[in-house]
Nucleic acid binder design. Structure first.
Lengths: 120, 120
DNA sequence: TCTAGTGTTCTATCCAACTAATACACTAGT
DNA sequence: ACTAGTGTATTAGTTGGATAGAACACTAGA
């Protein structure tokens, strides 16, 4: 996995795991790879993975069990809420940043339609 | 000015100046505050401002003149292109991130409409 | 020519993120 | 009991961003 500069790796790992969960590649209740395996896969240090998983545990997105492993929270509703939260979060950041450029709601709407058309 | 953690301050200063230019609060050809004044205004170190301005200069968004000051590039077309580039950039990041959550173009469109409605 | 205002450079220090290597603590199966 | 696999913690070292303070280099006007 390739990481962007200027954004802490442990945050990018969190995002990666969010994605795996929301897309159901890591289903509710599923066991995550061990911190050591993840570190190998992502070519980062164990401590960096540890930090990411630890925060995900604090957020109740995964359940971290000493000696057993880490597991996606086994609750479809929580996962659904997470997905919605991530989606709205992305849209809000975009909207707020465009607002800072003095774009009106109508202008934002216009640019969005244009962009989506280009993806047709 | 308040800065976010996890994002280098000099990058946030760049974004801030982008905004000032694109919104015409800093018109083409206008003189920017000195690095020392900017550092005071933003409550950061001179060197941090220096780094931001230096990069903006490399990008030809401003013209940095030793002994005179820094000036917004005096070319309406360049400013216009900058604005478009920033807008498309914001939208692209949002779109790509939502795609990573396995959302289809139609789903993205749906969530966007919903969000914009809520801002009516 | 002097001076105030500007950008530029340098040295030193601090801190968070990251790495490396190792050890510790717990769990489950044999 | 032992062992393999797991999360957790510690100590040490590197790097990039940010700070502080000072000096240098250039410009324009008095």
């Amino acid at each position: 996995m390739k990481f962007k500069d200027n954004i802490p790796i442990y945050l990018q790992i969190k995002d990666y795991i969010y994605q795996e969960i929301v897309t159901n590649r890591l289903a509710p209740g599923a066991k995550l790879p061990s911190v050591r395996d993840l570190a190998l896969d992502l070519s980062v240090n164990t401590n960096t993975v540890q930090r990411a998983l630890s925060e995900l545990g604090d957020e109740n997105v995964i359940e971290v069990q000493r000696g057993r492993g880490s597991f996606v929270v086994d609750d479809q509703k929580i996962v659904g809420n997470l997905k919605k939260k991530l989606i709205i979060g992305e849209i809000k950041v975009m909207y707020d940043n465009l607002t800072k450029l003095d774009l009106s709601k109508e202008e934002i709407s216009y640019y969005l339609e244009n962009y989506l058309e280009g993806r047709a």
